[in-house]
């Protein structure tokens, strides 16, 4: 291939038709409350790991809806349960994380 000194850039656009959401759907079967997230961010604001690792349950759910690999976020979770405490929709975030982790096994 000829070297032009520049290349086609990878598009950052999220293509919802190609975003595989099987994992999200599987998770929702086990944790149906995952669907009720309204992206308020309480979970991330209170997360022990967030400020050091970028962990955010909100981003985990959003990432799954967009077909992204959320394992890097997930691995930072320490399962302390603080996010469960603050979620206004009462999402059992601890169970959500555990169910999701199992799906990657």
């Amino acid at each position: 291939m000829m070297d032009f000194g520049f290349k086609l850039s990878k598009s950052a656009t999220i293509d919802l038709d190609r975003a595989g959401t099987e994992r999200y759907e599987k998770l929702c079967a086990l944790s149906p409350d995952a669907r009720t997230c309204m992206a308020c961010g309480s979970c991330s604001a209170t997360c022990t790991a967030a400020s050091f690792s970028g962990m955010s349950v909100r981003k985990v759910i959003l990432g799954l809806q967009r077909g992204q690999d959320v394992r890097p976020l997930l691995s930072a979770c320490m399962l302390c349960g603080k996010c469960t405490l603050v979620c206004p929709r009462g999402i059992n975030t601890r169970r959500l994380i555990l169910n999701l982790s199992k799906s990657y096994d």
């Binding site: 000194g5 520049f6 290349k7 086609l8 850039s9 598009s11």
Partner: peptide
């Protein structure tokens, strides 16, 4: 700007 030229052709490609 050659460093940006990839963006130029990527839009044409799109």
């Amino acid at each position: 700007v050659k460093a940006n030229r990839g963006y130029c052709v990527s839009n044409t490609h799109k």
